[in-house]
Design a protein around this nucleic acid. Structure first.
Lengths: 109, 109
DNA sequence: ATCTTATATCGCAAATATACGATTAATATT
DNA sequence: AATATTAATCGTATATTTGCGATATAAGAT
C-alpha cells in the first residue's frame, strides 16, 4: 500500500522535494517564465498564453503559491501574481549546498 | 479527461519540468545526497540507509537514471551509481537562465 | 439592483506516481 | 551443478496529480 513514507525523510529533503514538485510541470515553468518576463504582475493574461482551461491555470497558480514560489495579491476583481525571488534564491542555495560536497574529486563512472 | 497536455509546451519547459520531477521526492533527494557524500559509487548501501524496500529504491534509482541525473554501471552482480554532475550543472544553468531576466527591477508585490 | 468580468473552488474522470512483495536475471561462491 | 547474493522487473493496491466543466464569489459597470 502506498502509505506516505515521505515523512520518514529529513526536513531539508522534504522541502527541496516540495519545491521541486512545484516546478515539475511544464505549465508551471511556463507560468514562471511569463511572470519573470513581465516586470509587472499578471493575472488572466496567463490563461490567454497557456493552452489550458482557466480553472486548470488557476490550480497551477495555487500550487506555485502554496510552494511559496510566487506571491498573489487581489487587485479589485482580478488577481495579480509575481515571482517570489527570495524563495527562488533559497531554493538555489539549498540545491547547491546539497551537492557541492565532492563535485571536484569524482573517482568513478 | 486528463489528456497529456504536457506536449503542448516548449522543449525547454518540458526538460526543466522533467528534471524537477526527478527531484520531486525526498527519497530521491536522499539518494543523491548519499551519492554526493560518497566519493565512490554505491549500490545496495542506499537500501540500508533509506527507510524503503529494495524494489522501491531500485525504482527511484531508475527514475533518476532516466532523468540523466545519475549514471549506473553494472559491476558484477551489483550495480554502481554515481551523480552525473554535468547534468546537474546543465539543470542549474537552464534554471538560472530562465529566471535571471528581471530579478533586479521588481516593481510590485 | 442587475449584469458583466475575472478568478477561485468543487466535483469528477483519467492518468501517474508511490510502495511493496514476489519473481526473475545475472553473477559469485561452494 | 547447486546455492547464495544483488539488483531489476512484474503485478498490484493505493495515493496523488492533472484537467475540465460547472458553479460560486467578488468587484466593477450599467
Amino acid at each position: 500500500m502506498a502509505l506516505n513514507k515521505k515523512q520518514s525523510f529529513g526536513k531539508k529533503e522534504q522541502d527541496l522535494a516540495e519545491c521541486s514538485k512545484a516546478l515539475a510541470h511544464p505549465a508551471r515553468i511556463a507560468i514562471l517564465k511569463v511572470l519573470a518576463q513581465h516586470n509587472e504582475c499578471i493575472c488572466g493574461e496567463i490563461v490567454d498564453v497557456l493552452p489550458l482551461a482557466q480553472s486548470t491555470v488557476s490550480q497551477h497558480l495555487k500550487e506555485l503559491k502554496n510552494a511559496g514560489l510566487i506571491i498573489g495579491t487581489i487587485d479589485g476583481p482580478r488577481s495579480c501574481y509575481c515571482i517570489n525571488w527570495k524563495a527562488f534564491e533559497k531554493f538555489n542555495r539549498e540545491f547547491s549546498f546539497l551537492f557541492n560536497h565532492l563535485k571536484t574529486e569524482q573517482a568513478c563512472c
